[in-house]
Nucleic acid binder design. Structure first.
Lengths: 198, 198, 198, 198
DNA sequence: TACTAAGCGAGACGGTACGTCGAGTCTTTGG
DNA sequence: CCAAAGACTCGACGTACCGTCTCGCTTAGTA
């Protein structure tokens, strides 16, 4: 699933090894550039200069821009894989999932770029399908075997759609909003709120 | 809101007027090309040739590719507003809304381009924000004054998110799926199904 | 030989006649523009605007830029056709010829454009060959039947070459220089000058 | 004087060096294209393709078409200086000079381009002014200290003018014609010819 | 007097070339 | 074998100018 930066087959370590410093700088620079300009608007040369290195250092690691984009996302998500289902309560699990996904993508401003890439030509989309499938899997684990198994895929689509909307709008919804969305998806009653509150 | 191809304010018609034939052909060609390849993948030259005209005819009307993209989307959405609320039943209204939106956008293959544009730089996004607001308004009219007025905005976000997902995936959901999604958003029980059916 | 601005065959006079004012303004503007930028550097649009008229007024009179160029030269030469041979003295005739040709072309700064056109693709060159042939003819009339008939064509080439050089250099030679050149071409002794003079 | 393709002053060779192969191929291709179509008629793309390279390779070396034209002429004239004066006989020297200049320029078909350049805007003209000055110098060395020193500059103008005419006309004059021209310029009797010969 | 054919100014039209930019690859010197 | 620099090919961009066309108007000369 993850796009590792190396493609050397099994050579134990011939010649000078790659510097992790360079790789890290590239991923950070790429992240910033993609967040600012989107997949197509980002310029490889700019990423290289920002990382104080050269284009070739990029192409030695990733075959093309699309793959770099994917790797940068991977990097951003590293350590922030969706927490696995706790299986305590579907509502709590979903709530944490939604909150977490929105958190990491708005923090890095990658939301729009992420959605844009999902809507791109298949070749680009394919790179992110892995991520999506990952999310779907996690959500399935949260719902399977519960009372909410019925219409599971549609529930999942609703959750993912809701996340996408927040990413596109670059808007972090309030706790109550997330809670409401989750309750609706699960077919529970939405939480009470004082009258007059929307 | 709309990106009209002409910017001459009140000139009393000096010189040869622009041919509507050419403008229309260009918008159609642009729509097709953008739908097929996205904003950045589309080629201006191809659009011009498809419309059996020249690049200059394009640049005489719109200053750059981005603006042309906006205008093309504008053109596509003209005359395809969502049906207004029937106020018979919220569920029926929502069902028709979702079905209709997905219908028109998958028919023209504009789904991905639409979402991509929403996630683009503000200049492009602005064109579609009007469309979105339109949709939102319609949805509000469907829900306001009903039992589902509580959490209305979140319900709307769920509906729109669901539509977006279908557009991105270029997948037309089944009738049952739409029905399920609508019932969930409204907090009704999902329809009964024989056991074993997912 | 001359390139008249009209190509209407024998129609006596139907419709609105062309305005001489416009034709003249165009020729003047063309002359200035060609002098400043050469045949290829000149811009039709600029000529039209300078003459306070439109491109179409040009193309109604002359089929293309090359022909306009030729017409402009014709116009510049009008009234300054090389004086025919006086048959008094070959030396005097030649002197007047050289002086006259240089005069008219440096006065209008057309020298470089003229030579440049002569050195252009055949299609352009053809337009000026008429002028050249005209000159050649005049020169022949000056020499034929005199003692200088021997090697006449070479003498003519020498004279024309000398004129070209002065045009290219945009330099108007002194009276003495012209006199010297003519005497040499005729095989006469150059004029005596006080020692020390170059 | 010369328009070298590189402008890097003393950089100690960073990055991949420009390939002489490409530079040479470009200059040759440019020369051929300019010779065939003149400065404005030549197409950059054609030059690049002929040299089996790309437009970028051209623009990396020379900022625009005009400069490339200059560089190409420069290249063509490198190593083709006129033979120095032999000081045996002014007539013989001049004869060899005229013959040689016409030879080299008609061989490469550069005659018209050469004259066209001389008549161009100063920026282009400057490249060839050096060449011209060279020729002038050689001619002066042939005449100075001889009986033909009187009116030397005018004699030189006649010679150069004669050469230009031949170049423009792309006509290689016969031996007799050249001999005649030289004799006239020197004020000697033209060679005897059988009656009936022009 | 009205009609009619053409000139006129403005500007759109299709086409060709320009000079620029970015992607991804290749080739140097130096570690 | 990596690193940095920069040349390399390719293909698209947006601009400029040519010569043509189509508007709404004006201006003779004829009916």
């Amino acid at each position: 699933m993850s796009v590792s930066p190396s493609f050397r087959p099994a050579a134990p370590a011939a010649g000078r090894p790659r510097q992790r410093r360079v790789t890290d700088a590239l991923l950070s620079a790429a992240l910033a550039e993609f967040a600012r300009h989107g997949l197509d608007g980002a310029r490889i040369e700019t990423i290289a200069r920002t990382a104080r290195t050269s284009k070739q250092a990029i192409y030695r690691r990733w075959p093309d821009k699309t793959t770099l984009f994917s790797a940068a996302l991977d990097h951003a998500f590293a350590g922030s894989r969706p927490d696995p289902a706790q299986r305590l309560s579907a509502a709590a699990d979903l709530d944490r999932f939604v909150r977490g996904r929105i958190e990491v993508l708005t923090a890095t401003s990658l939301g729009p770029a992420f959605v844009q890439a999902l809507a791109s030509r298949p070749q680009v989309k394919a790179v992110l399908d892995g991520v999506e499938e990952d999310w779907r899997l996690t959500l399935r684990q949260m719902l399977v075997g519960t009372a909410f198994e019925a219409g599971m895929e549609t529930r999942i689509d609703l959750v993912l759609g809701y996340v996408h909307r927040c990413l596109v709008a670059e808007r972090r919804p309030s706790d109550v909003e997330i809670e409401t969305a989750v309750h609706l998806v699960l077919g529970l009653m939405p939480p009470r709120r004082p009258p007059g509150c929307r």
